[in-house]
Amino acid sequence: VTLFVALYDYEARTEDDLSAHKGEKFQILNSSEGDWWEARSLTTGETGYIPSNYVAPV
C-alpha cells in the first residue's frame, strides 16, 4: 500500500477530482497518469484524482 499525506488543501474542480484537506492520508491507486494521481481517501473512502504535487509520502 502506497500512502501519501496532503500537504495543502485542494478543492475538487471536476467530478473526477477528489478534494483533500491538509494532513489527510491517501492510498495511491494509480500514479501513471502524470501530474494527477488516482487516490482513495483513508478518511472518507472516496476515490478520485488529486494533484501529485499536493501530497508527499508518509
Results as ranks from 00 to 15, higher is better:
Val1Pro: 12
Val1Gln: 12
Val1Arg: 09
Val1Leu: 13
Val1Asp: 12
Thr2Asp: 11
Thr2Lys: 11
Thr2Gly: 12
Thr2Asn: 12
Leu3Arg: 02
Leu3Thr: 10
Leu3Lys: 04
Leu3Pro: 04
Phe4Trp: 15
Phe4Leu: 06
Phe4Gln: 01
Phe4Asn: 01
Val5Tyr: 12
Ala6Met: 09
Ala6Val: 06
Leu7Tyr: 03
Leu7Gly: 00
Leu7Cys: 10
Tyr8Ile: 06
Asp9Ile: 03
Asp9Val: 04
Asp9Tyr: 05
Tyr10Ser: 01
Tyr10Arg: 04
Ala12Gly: 11
Arg13Ile: 10
Arg13Ser: 11
Arg13Ala: 12
Thr14Gly: 15
Glu15Val: 11
Glu15Gln: 12
Asp16Phe: 15
Asp16Ala: 14
Asp17Val: 12
Leu18Gln: 02
Leu18Phe: 04
Leu18His: 01
Leu18Met: 11
Ser19Phe: 05
Ser19Thr: 10
Ser19Trp: 05
Ala20Pro: 01
His21Asp: 04
His21Leu: 10
His21Ser: 12
Lys22Val: 13
Gly23Ala: 01
Gly23Tyr: 05
Gly23Ser: 02
Glu24His: 03
Lys25Cys: 12
Phe26Ile: 05
Phe26Pro: 01
Phe26Asn: 00
Phe26Gln: 00
Gln27Phe: 14
Gln27Thr: 09
Gln27Ser: 07
Gln27His: 11
Gln27Lys: 06
Ile28Tyr: 02
Leu29Arg: 02
Leu29Met: 07
Asn30Cys: 12
Ser31His: 10
Ser31Phe: 15
Ser31Cys: 15
Ser31Gly: 09
Glu33Leu: 14
Glu33Asn: 15
Glu33Pro: 10
Glu33Phe: 12
Gly34Ile: 10
Gly34Lys: 13
Asp35Glu: 11
Trp36Leu: 11
Trp36Asn: 06
Trp36Ala: 06
Trp37Val: 08
Trp37Lys: 01
Glu38Phe: 15
Glu38Tyr: 15
Ala39Ile: 06
Ala39Asp: 03
Arg40Ile: 13
Arg40Met: 14
Arg40Tyr: 10
Arg40His: 07
Ser41Leu: 03
Ser41Asn: 11
Ser41Val: 02
Leu42Pro: 03
Thr43Ile: 10
Thr43Glu: 15
Thr44Trp: 02
Thr44Asn: 05
Thr44Phe: 02
Thr44Gln: 02
Gly45Trp: 07
Gly45Thr: 02
Glu46Pro: 00
Glu46Tyr: 09
Glu46Thr: 07
Gly48Tyr: 05
Gly48Cys: 07
Gly48Arg: 00
Gly48Ile: 05
Gly48Met: 03
Gly48Thr: 04
Gly48Val: 04
Tyr49His: 07
Tyr49Leu: 14
Tyr49Ser: 05
Tyr49Lys: 13
Ile50Glu: 01
Ile50Asn: 02
Pro51Thr: 03
Pro51Asn: 10
Ser52Glu: 03
Asn53Ser: 14
Asn53Met: 12
Asn53Gln: 11
Asn53Ala: 14
Tyr54Thr: 11
Tyr54Asn: 08
Val55Lys: 00
Val55Met: 13
Ala56His: 08
Pro57Gly: 04
Pro57Lys: 07
Pro57Ile: 08
Val58Glu: 09
